[in-house]
């Protein structure tokens, strides 16, 4: 059971003067339980790629199969139970009177659950996103930006998707909100083996979370690698409109004055460790 993408191409405005190939000849497999970061600049094709995963877009050539279901087949309802999609700024889609009702919405419309079964699922989704009981009866519009974002994600989690796709989930969140969100996602992945796919233009942010990085450029997968290796060639990243963490640039600068100083560093902790080796303790 996995996501299988074979020779996928998608063209917007096909056969018009505005024709534009958004993704071109992509082949890749994502296994259950992977934590994948899909990174690329605006217009690199990353959103187009993930919108194929739940059948919002259909391949113009090639195929996308999720847990054995071809996204071109008629089993679209089943497919969307498997793949939960969190769009950019999902809190703009909150609308119910209370947080509880908003999270419940996805269940009510799709499934035949008893009241008790629904309640269990709603509270589990809220817990997974660290939404406290006291918030449940509040209006979603009274919450802070970070809280709203978590409620909106809980509204997708409530249907218990095996694959969770999030498009720019941290945009506009403050640093703590961002860290808490990643912790929640980490926990969901660990306890339920849910596949988590994050779309982002910040390699730095996703590198700490993902165990696999796909870099998109001009509609193709330019790199399929681990976070550690992704920062090896900073010049290549920059040529694709991306950037490396500040400590990576720092490592490069230091390697100019200290011979053999490692340049692959991408976390604060690694930099501290390396500096302690070369700088004399007082």
């Amino acid at each position: 059971m996995a996501i299988e993408i074979n020779n996928l191409s998608h063209i917007y405005n096909k056969e018009t003067v505005m024709e534009k190939t958004a993704v071109h000849d992509i082949t890749l497999t994502i296994q259950d339980g992977e934590k994948v970061g899909i990174i690329g600049h605006t217009g690199s094709g990353k959103s187009t790629l993930v919108q194929h995963l739940n059948g919002l877009l259909k391949p113009h050539s090639g195929s996308v199969t999720v847990n054995g279901i071809d996204t071109k087949s008629k089993e679209i309802k089943e497919l969307r139970k498997i793949v939960g999609m969190v769009f950019q700024y999902p809190e703009h889609q909150l609308f119910e009177e209370t947080v509880y009702k908003d999270i419940a919405f996805g269940l009510k419309k799709q499934y035949e659950f008893t009241q008790e079964e629904m309640d269990v699922r709603i509270r589990a989704a809220a817990l997974a996103m660290s939404i406290s009981d006291e918030l449940m009866e509040k209006s979603p519009f009274e919450l802070s930006g970070g809280q709203k974002r978590r409620v909106a994600i809980a509204g997708v989690l409530v249907t218990d998707p095996r694959i969770l796709v999030l498009d720019e989930p941290t945009a506009g969140l403050d640093p703590r909100g961002r860290d808490e969100l990643f912790q929640s996602l980490e926990e969901i992945n660990r306890t339920k083996n849910t596949t988590i796919i994050i779309v982002s233009h910040s390699m730095e942010e996703v590198a700490g979370f993902a165990n696999r990085i796909l870099v998109m450029n001009k509609g193709t997968v330019a790199m399929d690698t681990t976070p550690d290796k992704a920062f090896e060639d900073v010049d290549l990243l920059e040529s694709m409109g991306l950037s490396a963490p500040q400590v990576t640039y720092m490592a490069r600068a230091i390697s100019g004055v200290i011979k053999d100083f490692p340049t692959r560093i991408h976390t604060v902790e690694a930099m501290v460790k390396e500096l302690m080796k070369v700088v004399k303790h007082p």
Binding site: P245, V247, M250, V268, E269, M271, V272, L275, M276, H281
Partner: peptide, 12 residues
């Protein structure tokens, strides 16, 4: 990040 690196070194 750079500020944090030196902060952590100072803690040590």
């Amino acid at each position: 990040q750079v500020t944090e690196v030196f902060y952590k070194l100072n803690q040590k």
